[in-house]
């Protein structure tokens, strides 16, 4: 489904490369966890997949079902089924959560030749998901993320994901800042979406999340490259040993 080949990226007005030849292949139904030290490029990768213009791709390719993703606008990518749950969800004062979400859903439906949903059908569509993710009516009618607590923002991200039903879900540290119950709620929301034709890339610092969302693959991103890949046991190893030993290993082969 998603093919990333030799991806190089930097901040547009900057010289320094952040991603330095990253390669990754994701098939439908799979869950890939990406771990790695602060500043190694995890969020950059997530943002490049979603199409953030701050980053410039200098080399390599990213395709979704064979189509060149890098040629598409961020909204086009969303219409093709890409979703990024932000590490820092954005507050949008003056725009209500439900209005925003319905606009997003209808924009995608329109782009894919489906009928738009009216307010009533939309409320029906979201009712179940609201419950699953423990959102309050108040949170729905408030401005997008405005005044939400850190945990509420993260739950709102997963809620939006559940409503939009994307095909490729990229979760950037959705578990950071969540209490234990919220972590379970979020994991439950994600697991409910798992299906044979949907894939996940889960960026996290904590092995704990992966107890709830069990990955098929774990990758270590260091200094702009995937330096090691393995099964879910790699996460346990990282938890126990940190990243130092990998640095030595990578350094030795470089």
């Amino acid at each position: 489904m998603l093919q990333i080949a030799n991806l190089h990226a930097k901040v547009a007005e900057d010289e320094r490369e952040i991603l330095k030849g990253l390669t990754l292949s994701v098939k439908p139904g799979e869950v890939h966890a990406i771990m790695g030290p602060n500043g190694s490029g995890k969020s950059t990768l997530a943002n490049v997949i979603a199409g953030r213009e701050t980053y410039e791709v200098t080399d390599g390719a990213v395709t979704l079902d064979g189509e060149d993703l890098l040629e598409m606008e961020p909204d086009e990518r969303a219409h093709k089924g890409v979703f990024l749950a932000f590490q820092y969800p954005v507050e949008i004062p003056g725009v209500s959560n439900t209005y925003f979400l319905r606009a997003a859903l209808n924009a995608r439906r329109k782009a894919n030749g489906e009928d738009e949903m009216d307010a009533l059908a939309f409320m029906k569509h979201i009712r179940e998901k609201v419950k699953t993710l423990g959102l309050t009516d108040d949170m729905l009618s408030r401005s997008v993320n405005e005044g939400f607590s850190g945990g509420e923002k993260k739950r709102n991200e997963i809620f939006q994901m559940a409503v939009l039903e994307p095909r490729l879900c990229v979760l950037d540290e959705t578990d950071s800042g969540l209490d234990i119950d919220a972590l379970q709620t979020v994991a439950h929301g994600v697991n409910a979406l798992r299906s044979p034709d949907r894939a996940f890339i889960v960026v996290t610092h904590y092995q704990r999340l992966l107890n709830f969302i069990v990955p098929d693959f774990v990758h270590v991103l260091m200094d702009g490259r995937l330096v090691k890949s393995g099964g879910k046991e790699l996460a346990l190893e990282l938890e126990a040993k940190g990243y130092g030993w990998l640095e030595a290993e990578v350094g030795a082969t470089a």
């Binding site: 961020p74 890409v82 954005v90 997003a104 995608r108």
Partner: peptide
Amino acid sequence: EDLPLFYMRSRGVPKDQAEAVLVYAFAAE
């Protein structure tokens, strides 16, 4: 602002509409 615009677009809202919504939100107060 660049970030709210990207946030909305990443959810599928087309650029023109995202801009208009943000501008409207500015006046809505």
